[in-house]
Design a protein around this nucleic acid. Structure first.
Lengths: 217, 217
DNA sequence: TCTGATACAACTGTAATACAAGTGAGCTGA
DNA sequence: TCAGCTCACTTGTATTACAGTTGTATCAGA
């Protein structure tokens, strides 16, 4: 937080008008931002994603007070890629979409949905609501794999980031309450925009347990 | 059990609304919970379990019986970087080291240790044992932030990866049981070698109740 | 044309208050 | 003994009030 315009004016012996003009210049450079009734602050660039439960990107954005939008790039039934077919079956509904935060690209997401469940969904449905809201199946949990990579050229264009820049990748398999896999999704985030935040309550347990790390060959 | 909202408000000279907001934040982290007419309490271990599903790469290595080695690159007391100084104080013990798995570089780690605690440690100590084993302070937990980046040139050389390749970065703040920050560390892993796997057990209702993301600090 | 001064609207976060609803301990009476 | 009731205390929720902040407009003077 910055001091209020009034106190800045007192500090620098300038009027509020002048202080505001200076702050507006900084805002145009993206260095500061303000909310009416709240104050001026240094904007936090990264979106922190807590890993405490199942959540959608939109939900997190809305909670952080940002406007979120979805743009459907593809909507079709296809032969599943090998790793998807292994858990969801041969044919799946594949939805590629772009997530926007305050109008700027935040994530490129591909969702694969089991064919029987996807048959009930329209393109308009997935544009309006999240899969979690749409599916008429109680969800039980998910397995999430977080990695890093250099951005693919087509993703770079979609996400409006420079070629060769870093991205966070998430591969998620969502299960129903009954335990069978329902959805798989791949998320690609620009690294400079997003971070995952994990609270580890007790060091010993979480470090020794260590059942969940995978070394890639 | 925690004191009632009313008595907490009296203790901290804050209104019940404010106390509730604070408690809701803690609830969103799974640290406390409440029942109407009963009160606020620390949830049983089982309920707190969702947060423990993540493990670190060093822990996994040591457990899986791979040959794990540490190579100390630097060991010195320095002026802390800004973000470290904010939580650990102006002067800290900074230890830079390289982690090896079966003789191959796996991670470049920098650990910052509070000066009073670091004063007890020798270079040989930190080469032999982990900080968690060395510190004579009961540890209470840690906050971990996972991100991605393009590798720095010096890290590329240390980790033996091509320039411009992707890395997974982890910034961890470890607290004592009393709650004060004791250690901070930065871990850099080659992206092609490592992934984090996180189990998200349930759709967490408490997630909706309080903001777990903040735009401003 | 720029700066200062002033005024007012709109918004935010906190405080204060009130009431509904749930919990648990203790009392009462059969 | 025990079922049922009362009652103090708790959280859940909504409302109003208020001080402090930004957003915006207007006017005066250098």
């Amino acid at each position: 937080m910055l001091p209020s315009e009034a106190s800045l004016g007192a500090s620098y012996d300038a009027s509020r008008v002048t202080i505001r003009k200076a702050l507006e210049v900084l805002r145009s450079q993206g260095l500061v931002d303000s909310r009416q009734g709240f104050g001026w602050f240094v904007p936090s660039e990264v979106l922190a994603q807590p890993l405490t439960g199942l959540a959608t990107i939109e939900g997190q954005l809305e909670r952080s007070g940002r406007e979120s939008a979805r743009q459907i790039l593809e909507f079709q039934f296809v032969e599943a890629p090998a790793n998807v077919a292994a858990t969801l079956g041969q044919r799946v509904l594949e939805v590629r979409r772009l997530h926007l935060s305050d109008g700027r690209p935040l994530a490129r997401v591909t969702v694969w949905c089991r064919e029987d469940l996807g048959a009930e969904l329209s393109k308009a449905d997935v544009e309006r609501q999240s899969f979690y809201d749409l599916l008429d199946v109680p969800l039980g949990g998910a397995l999430q794999t977080i990695g890093a990579a250099v951005v693919q050229p087509d993703d770079a264009a979609l996400l409006d980031v420079p070629a060769e820049s870093a991205v966070l990748t998430v591969l998620r398999t969502t299960r129903s309450l009954a335990g069978d896999a329902v959805l798989m999704s791949e998320h690609v985030f620009p690294a400079h925009l997003t971070q995952f935040v994990v609270e580890l309550p007790t060091v010993d347990e979480s470090f020794d347990r260590a059942a969940s790390l995978r070394l890639v060959d």
